[in-house]
Amino acid sequence: MNLIVRGAVWFVVYLFLILFPLVVAAVADPLDVPRPFLVEVGVALGAVGLAITAFQFALVSRTRAAAAAFGEDALLQFHRQIGLVALACVWLHPLLLVVADFAPLGWMIAPVGDIPWAAQSGTLSAYALTGLIALSVWRRRLRLAYEWWQATHALLAITAVALGAIHMLEMGGYAGAPGVRMVWAAYLVLLGGLAVNYRLVRPLRMLRRPWEVARNVEERGGARTLVLRPVGHPGMAFQPGQFAWLITGGTPFALEQHPLSFSSSAETPPGGEVAFTIKAVGDWSGTRVPALQPGRRVWVDGPYGVFSVDREEGPGYVLIAGGSGIAPLRSMLLTLAAREDVRPVLLFYGNRRWEAMTYREELDALARRMNLTVVYAVEEPHPGWTGEVGYIDAAMLRRHLPKQFRRFRYFVCGPGAMMDAMEGILTGLGVPRTQVFTERFDMV
């Protein structure tokens, strides 16, 4: 099926799942005493907020059929942003009831003291959701390690949904109607199934396809290339630019997993090695990854993502990397070189210092093997540096882009702020938006 049609179908399914409880409630309409309009809007918002929160897990449970239509990173972004919509619904819900004089303000503020459990559970659920979102949005500012964030995220999510469901059932109202209860029971089964698939079936599948560390090489700029070899299976076919989740915790059932772009060539024979590039930024990448010895067993869940030259054919490519964003672009370059692709490729590579340019020797070697031009840009140039200085901007791009640059495809990977800037700059230069692709991993 066409990817657009498939995406549209999944989108309609999602909307249906969120709104169906409301439809059933409206049809059942079990309330004897009519309530004010504002109260009903508030109640509906609560139901919608709970439904979105419950299905947040479905969005990130790596269901291949859905991920294929949108790309895992687009799904992650939707998950993140729709979570904010859920938060708004969840807080507007009691707020409207308070405004309509239907519930006391105290219930909404402090879920303690002489308050019915039905209300307490709702407020606690809202606080759990608020905490979860605050930790996600401000994880770095709060200096919360990624692995700890993963654990709290799952725990708070389960708490928020469970308390929300208890609140709804305890409150009665529409949830008193057998139809509404049946819908939620079906949702519970559906989400339970997804959870079993995610926590049990998926790791079991991975268990049969173990990998081992072949080499763990220190690179420039505080990065490491982790080369993995499949053990007893043909390995993984991926498209250059895609990513996978790496599990190094000793078992595929480990909670901790890290999304990483493949940085090796996609043109490897069955049984071939794959590589990831990992920059030291936290406890895992800074301490535990360097300690991974050859022979160490690890697991790879992938490939995922739609950020790939293989999906976007064009007469030439412009790759723009910021810092460790070079990883997926290296994979693209190695793949194109392995295929002896003759199309022109321009790589703009920005980094703080020349010494921190990961893979620069390799990139220079590639430029001699294929139709590749590399433009390095350093923020802190050393004495005698004659290349580009500062952030990659419109003027710098214009100095190096060939005449037909508007027909090329653009792949940008780096810090979020850089990608935002680059999208604006490229469209400003007249590159059609549909030809610019970004990969965003620093969402949390």
């Binding site: 909307l15 409301l22 309009f37 109640v43 708004a88």
Partner: peptide, 30 residues
Amino acid sequence: MHHVIVTRVVWFVAALLGLACTLFAMGVTP
């Protein structure tokens, strides 16, 4: 550019859900 599209879709969904809640309330309020 897909992240711009995703943001638009989220706004669209938010508006749609808001409308659905309003319609629901209109439907069940006499």
